[in-house]
């Protein structure tokens, strides 16, 4: 999902900007701020893909905010907005993606979005990437996903192996712990899974009372691609499937 930050200390203009962004990027998550102090704090915290910044805000300097945002996400597209162009040089020094003059029309926003400097995440980038051929690996936007417990990763692997089918707590316990008396521990693993993936704004699992399943739409998986008949995925299979988990041998046998 594309994340956009809108900042202008005039709330009438901020509102207008939000509406224009919504029209141009209907699926995007929009963060907005007309409070310079909060904006400074936000800029150090929230990675966003595009930021529309008023270059001349009352209590904080748009260029400072831009620099903070770039530290949080080096591939951010900064688009400065101004009433009058005397700050053009500052903007260029920042490697901004664009520069808009107020009043800003929907068309101007569309043009700025169409010509961004760094490409925007497409829906594939928003999926969690899972590798089953070889050792089981799980990553997001190129970085391995780090759970609190190793068993959480094994839980995800098992759910992936089940291909989206619902799995009962007892079944999971039996697989992970080789007995079924670990209710409390299982809850911890579930919490760990949810906490870790919540930060990514991805719903990795679906749950109902006593059952859990993987949400296939949230993942890109070589095994699933292989099952769909993808030739590139078939090439990736070299005789190993979730090599670190012994319970995976059953599925491995089916793949031969």
């Amino acid at each position: 999902m594309i994340r956009v930050l809108c900042a202008d200390d005039e709330s009438i203009l901020l509102n207008e900007l939000e509406e224009n962004v919504r029209a141009v990027l209907p699926g995007a998550e929009i963060l907005s701020s007309d409070d310079s102090a909060k904006l400074l704090e936000m800029s150090c915290r929230e990675p966003v893909d595009i930021a529309f910044l008023d270059i001349n805000m009352g209590t904080v300097d748009g260029v400072t905010v831009a620099k903070n945002l770039q530290k949080t996400n080096p591939k951010i597209n900064i688009i400065f907005c101004t009433g009058y162009s005397e700050y053009a040089l500052d903007a260029l020094n920042i490697n901004c993606s664009g520069y808009l003059m107020k009043p800003i029309s929907e068309d101007a926003v569309r043009k700025a979005v169409d010509t961004v400097r760094y490409s925007l995440p497409d829906s594939e980038d928003d999926k969690i990437k899972v590798r089953c051929f070889g050792n089981f690996d799980i990553s997001y936007r190129g970085k391995p996903l780090k759970f609190k417990y190793n068993k959480t990763k094994e839980l995800v692997a098992y759910l992936i192996d089940r291909k989206g089918a619902e799995v009962s707590k007892n079944e999971v316990s039996a697989i992970l712990f080789e007995d079924d008396e670990h209710d409390a521990y299982l809850s911890k693993l579930r919490k760990d899974l949810i906490d870790t993936t919540e930060m990514l704004h991805v719903d990795l699992i679906r749950t109902r009372k006593g059952y859990v399943a993987i949400n296939r739409d949230a993942v890109t998986c070589d095994y699933y691609d292989y099952l769909d008949g993808d030739e590139a995925a078939a090439d990736k299979f070299r005789g190993e499937y979730m090599a670190q988990y012994s319970w995976a041998e059953e599925t491995l046998a089916e793949l031969y």
Binding site: I12, L13, N15, E16, G83, Y84, K102, P103
Partner: peptide, 15 residues
């Protein structure tokens, strides 16, 4: 004060 003029126009435009 061109900055002020353009900001005012932008607000009026939004209104």
């Amino acid at each position: 004060r061109p900055h002020f003029l353009f900001n005012s126009l932008a607000c009026i435009s939004a209104l």
